[in-house]
């Protein structure tokens, strides 16, 4: 039987401020099984990072109001956990890889010391043992000369190496769930390929659950088992990765996939989605995507479509699909 690592039902996150309420996440269901990789894809500002922070309970000081019907991590309800218990959870059961390695690492500490901290905090080991673990962890992610690099400061390493160190930190305590928030956006193409291969290999060999957050479809296609496309705080389409690329159903997904430059393409213009995301304080009526949608109807302008599960198990939030599948 498959084990469910993360199970979130109807997650809502709002940020109240002087001018109004920003509804960042509006009712999201997310579940990840052991050994699976789920990708959350969408433009900046669609709420994907807020979702990941909320599932690590890292929104405490931001003034956000987080509500969910269910938030379970390996069977533990994390809504009830105290801050102290949550600290034990983070790192050990759930960990995160951030986008910009240079700002995620402490610039005045050697990477070795930063890795040691994790082992000392979670396993109560001596400094000497921690060092052994750290060098082992660096070796695992393919850092050359781990014993030498152990003493290096973050600025002495290249971008790809720093990202490897972050991955080493995330895998250090053998957590059940790893959240990677745009792990390769700041990297060059050749290094991006290296880091993605590494992440994918580690996830598969350690049989971990991975939540991958990105705006770039080309990153997820070969890694993810399931893809959730987010738009303006709601999931608009959810499908197994291969099927999503073979036949995208939501017009937004079609536009996103079309706008990625492909090697097979002929010279010429790109397919584009016009305009940009709606203002989160002032979202349009009806389907949030209708002002940018080429096939929007009157119904789309007034009513928000539900996230409907089709016969083949795929989920899509669109009136056009709704009508096409009506009996």
């Amino acid at each position: 039987m498959s084990e469910r690592v993360l199970d979130i039902r109807n997650l809502k996150v709002v940020f109240p401020n002087e001018l109004g309420i920003i509804r960042a996440v509006e009712g999201i269901d997310l579940e990840i099984e052991k050994g699976k990789c789920v990708a959350l894809v969408g433009e900046s500002g669609c709420g994907k990072s807020v979702t990941s922070l909320a599932s690590m309970k890292l929104l405490g000081n931001s003034g956000a109001i987080v509500r969910a019907d269910k938030m379970e991590l390996c069977g533990t309800d994390i809504r009830e956990l105290s801050d102290k218990d949550m600290q034990d959870f983070r790192g050990k059961r759930i960990s995160m890889i951030f986008q910009d390695a240079l700002s995620a690492l402490n610039p005045v500490m050697t990477i070795g010391k930063q890795l040691d901290e994790i082992f000392i905090r979670h396993f109560n080991v001596s400094k000497k043992e921690a060092k052994e673990h750290s060098i082992e962890a660096l070796k695992l992610v393919g850092v050359p000369d781990p014993a030498v690099r152990y003493k290096a400061y973050p600025h002495e390493l290249s971008g790809g190496m720093r990202q490897r160190v972050l991955i080493a930190m995330a895998f250090a305590c053998n957590p059940d769930l790893i959240i990677a928030d745009e792990p390769t956006t700041a990297l060059d193409v050749t290094i991006q390929a290296q880091v993605l291969d590494l992440l994918s290999d580690l996830q598969k060999s350690h049989h971990k659950a991975l939540l991958l957050i990105t705006h770039d479809f080309s990153v997820v296609v070969h890694m993810a088992d399931e893809i959730c496309v987010m738009y303006s705080g709601k999931i608009v389409e959810k499908a197994p990765a291969k099927e999503l690329f073979r036949e995208p159903l939501h017009p937004y997904t079609k536009g996103l996939i079309g706008s990625v430059a492909k090697m097979e393409d002929k010279k010429g213009k790109f397919i584009q989605i016009p305009d940009s995301l709606p203002n989160p304080m002032n979202k349009p009526s009806g389907c949030y995507f209708h002002p940018r949608c080429a096939c929007a109807t009157e119904k789309c302008k007034t009513y928000m479509p539900p996230l409907r599960t089709l016969e083949n198990g795929r989920q899509v939030r669109c009136w056009i699909q709704e009508e096409a599948h009506e009996p």
Partner: peptide, 8 residues
């Protein structure tokens, strides 16, 4: 070859 293809 490092260009990520989105062809499944």
């Amino acid at each position: 070859s490092a260009v990520l293809s989105i062809d499944v």
